[in-house]
């Protein structure tokens, strides 16, 4: 394993929220972003769950990669191992929440199964491996990416709620206008570029 890049974890944290936002510049997690953004409360709940799972998977997958995959030369199986870790973790978090935090479980529980197949989670892991982050860099990268995703989906859902009764040309309703809004948001986020660079 090469040395980790010499970037402060805090810079990675800010950069992954603003300049390399998961959705708006890496397009990860777009499917649920479009499908679950018609209502602010739901969208925000999904964003919170994604953030939580993303931090945990990045931490665990970093340890797994460093202490299991690299020593045993299992690089070819890395994808399978990562996806199993994510699926297992989601299941465990779901059960633990149900047992210890029932209130939170009622609010967020329905989103958890959706998260296993959210590409942003696996994407964060793969980015962390490709960029050789160390443990704290990976953790804060996961946290920042999750918060960035949450910010983007909440903003989109808030805009869509306001637009719900707007009359639109035929065919533009639904996904098409959602993509236009997302494009405008991405355009706005380009304004942040240049402040931090991590890729």
């Amino acid at each position: 394993m090469n040395a980790a890049p010499a970037i402060s974890p805090f810079v990675i944290f800010l950069a992954s929220i603003f300049t390399s936002n998961m959705i708006l510049s890496n397009f990860l997690g777009t499917c649920s972003f479009i499908a679950v953004s018609s209502e602010f409360k739901t969208a925000s709940g999904l964003g919170k769950s994604v953030t939580m799972i993303m931090v945990l998977t990045n931490m665990i997958n970093w340890l797994v990669y460093k202490f299991l995959i690299l020593p045993l030369h299992l690089e070819n199986l890395a994808l399978i191992i990562f996806i199993i870790v994510i699926a297992a973790l989601v299941q465990i978090v779901e059960m633990a929440m149900d047992r210890f935090l029932p209130d939170l479980y009622i609010k967020l529980g329905i989103f958890l199964p959706l998260i296993t197949v959210n590409c942003a989670i696996l994407g964060a892991t793969l980015f962390m491996v490709i960029r050789n982050y160390d443990f704290w860099q990976s953790t804060l990268f996961g946290l920042g990416s999750g918060l960035g995703w949450w910010l983007a989906i909440s903003a989109l859902a808030a805009i869509r709620e306001k637009m719900a009764r707007t009359k639109l040309p035929k065919g533009l309703e639904g996904p098409a206008i959602t993509f236009v809004i997302t494009g405008l948001m991405a355009l706005a986020f380009i304004g942040f570029s240049g402040i931090f660079t991590i890729q």
Binding site: P169, P175, A176, V180, A186
Partner: peptide, 23 residues
């Protein structure tokens, strides 16, 4: 080649196709 254009282009494709199929 930047992200916003990708979103706009896919929006236009979805729009054209669904307007066509609706008609």
């Amino acid at each position: 080649v930047m992200p916003p254009a990708a979103f706009f282009l896919i929006a236009v494709m979805i729009w054209i196709l669904s307007a066509h199929l609706q008609k």
